[in-house]
Write a protein that binds this DNA or RNA. Structure first.
Length: 564
RNA sequence: GCGCCUGUAGCUCAGUUGGAUAGAGCAACGGCCUUCUAAGCCGUAGGCCGCGCGUUCGAAUCGCGCCAGGCGCGCCA
């Protein structure tokens, strides 16, 4: 935030060894200590002096301009009393000047990213647990694009394998199937395979025929998996999740680049055919320590390939794309698997994508399992959430046409799910609970949207023409100042979120900002402000808050609403 | 058994990467709509930061050891 250069510049002049990034300004714990705090720990480490000494040195030796009213050392901290009007105007000017880009540091300019996420089996309607992958991946895509990266989103279509074989077997005529009926078919097929070995064996046969390239079988596989994929993408689309490229697993059955990797494994005596005629990698020969997960099976005895075999070819293909960043979002159950893939590729001098893991969404009864049919479907959840939101919208937006009310309700529902998921750290288990997931009050996406709607309402009624602050910018109250400081923190929040590959800080920012705005809203009249200068400054502050919230919500895939 | 992740208010989660008196929401209790949207606000109450030992000026945060939960560990993907 350039506004703080008024403080940073004289400090950097006095201590030339320091870089701008070393100076971390933060709100003080209480505003009566000062308007802004500098924490000297990082600087002190770099200068090899005690933080307490550095703090007092800054306070006594550095000469700041007249807009810095007081500089008080407090142990390792330096507290500044500022001309809030000047700093406030600088903060708001920067936000309104950058508008839709406010918060971005452009660090991704000119860089390419290949990101794979979701990639669920094309077998049935997705449940909310699977959707966590899509929401995390999509949030990351939005953050990276916001920072200037050119991102290509890939979806790996697992159109092969045992589960799909069984599903195809259970769908005699795919053209008469509906996507909604697929879940029951899938559950039934799995149950039958567990009980009936002949049926399971037929599944493997079908799979072998598919892999051998039998045209009719291939067509049938594609008919079933296309139907599923379209249904899944439609449901995920309701969340606002989109993909650039769909890669079919069945296109990666043969690849000379994989053969080269296998040659290297053979040279290292890490590849062998076991006593039951399977093709297996012994990872202990290429650096895998523990006994667990030592063996990695590539081929079944009948010569059909395992998932890992095809995925190796796919991973090689993705990495050869040469993107600056190659990311993949995976469930925590894939941790060992991803390490194994990484080891194999490393042994051949290749690299694997950077994995981002997330933990499962659990039901009170335990893990969700599509196979067993104990799931909360994403579409059911969105339907229910939309219905609840519509009740509120019907009551509050009577003047709007029905289509618009429906559209608002859908956006509130999306905000509720996406916010609830993205606000918690990815490696935490989440216990799904209908009641709390459908709540629109408190720390929720709809609460943030509501603050946006209130701002939009004020701006509508003001008749203000958007523009930068021209003359005086009075900041009269502590709430206004606290809100300004929070708004100023968006760029560093986004940068930290991107570096940590985690949307949660952005969600927290949106919540903090919405709460601070609401405090301001209750305490400070805008349209009826005491003076014209205050009315103008507060309107600009509303506008700036609006941009910060819109941008933060946008990174989470949530739309800020004008009315709700 | 081994490996990775998690443990913070009754419940769900934050906690600026080791820094000032650990913060929100839900649930509970008491207030606030003639006033820019009450999906809101104010107040009260609620804490052995899983347990123990260490590292240091200083630990919810780092290390070791336990305890509890999640995930994984050869022909699923």
């Amino acid at each position: 935030m350039k506004a703080f250069n008024i403080l940073a510049t004289p400090i950097l002049r006095a201590f030339p060894q320091l870089a701008p990034a070393d100076l971390t300004f933060a709100p003080p714990p209480k505003l009566d200590l000062g308007d802004l705090t500098l924490r000297t720990f990082d600087c002190a480490k770099k200068l090899q002096v005690a933080p307490v000494h550095l703090a007092s040195a800054i306070a006594t030796d550095v000469r700041f301009g007249t807009d810095v009213r007081a500089v008080t050392p407090a142990g390792p901290y330096v507290n500044f009393k500022l001309n809030r009007d000047v700093f406030g105007k600088a903060i708001v000017s920067e936000i309104l000047g950058t508008g839709p880009h406010y918060g971005s540091d452009g660090s991704g300019n000119g860089k390419r990213v290949l990101l794979e996420h979701t990639s669920i089996n094309p077998n049935a309607s997705p449940h909310v647990g699977r959707a966590r992958n899509a929401m995390i991946g999509d949030g990351l895509v939005r953050m990276l694009r916001f920072e200037g990266y050119s991102v290509e989103v890939h979806y790996y279509v697992n159109d092969m394998g045992r589960q799909i074989g069984l599903l195809v077997l259970a769908c005699p005529d795919p053209t008469t199937m509906t996507f909604d009926a697929m879940l029951q078919t899938y559950v039934a097929a799995n149950a039958r395979a567990d009980a009936d070995p002949d049926f399971a064996a037929q599944g493997y046969e079908l799979l072998a025929k598919m892999e051998a390239g039998d045209a009719a079988t291939r067509e049938k596989f594609h008919a079933v998996t296309d139907l599923c994929l379209q249904g899944q993408v439609a449901v995920l689309g309701r969340l606002g999740v989109e993909y650039d490229i769909f890669d079919r697993e069945s296109d990666y059955l043969r690849d000379p680049r994989l053969d080269e990797v296998l040659d290297v494994l053979r040279e290292k005596r890490a590849l062998f055919t076991d006593e039951e005629d399977r093709l297996v990698v012994d990872l202990s020969k290429i650096g895998h320590g523990p006994d667990e997960g030592r063996y990695f099976v590539l081929m079944r005895a009948n010569g059909s390939s395992m998932y890992g075999y095809r995925d190796l070819a796919y991973t090689i293909d993705k990495m050869d794309d040469g993107a600056d960043l190659n990311l993949i979002v995976l469930g925590e159950d894939h941790k060992l698997y991803a390490q194994q893939i990484n080891l194999i590729l490393q042994a051949a001098g290749r690299r694997a994508p950077e994995p981002l893991y997330y933990s499962y969404i659990l039901l009170k009864e335990g893990k969700m399992s599509t196979r067993q049919g104990n799931v909360v479907l994403l579409s059911d959840f969105l339907d229910e959430a939309t219905a609840r939101a519509r009740e509120r919208v019907e009551g509050q937006c009577k003047d709007l046409p029905p289509e618009e009310r429906q559209s608002i309700a859908e956006k509130v529902a999306v905000a509720a799910v996406r916010f609830a998921i993205l606000r918690v750290g990815p490696n935490k288990n989440v216990i799904f609970d209908w009641e709390s997931s459908l709540s629109f009050t408190g720390d929720t996406g709809p609460y943030v949207q509501y603050s946006c709607a209130r701002i939009a309402s004020i701006l509508r009624k003001s008749g203000m023409t958007p523009g930068l602050p021209q003359d005086t910018f009075p900041v009269e109250t502590d709430v206004e100042w606290a809100l300004l400081l929070k708004l100023a923190a968006l760029p560093q929040t986004v940068a930290a979120a991107v570096a940590g590959r985690n949307c949660a800080p952005v969600a927290q920012f949106a919540l903090d900002t919405a709460r601070l705005f609401t405090a301001f809203y209750h305490e400070c009249p805008v349209l009826q402000a005491p003076t014209e200068a205050q009315r103008s400054a507060r309107l600009q502050l509303c506008d700036a808050t609006h941009w910060a919230l819109k941008n933060a919500l946008g990174l989470l895939g949530i739309e800020a609403l004008e009315r709700m």
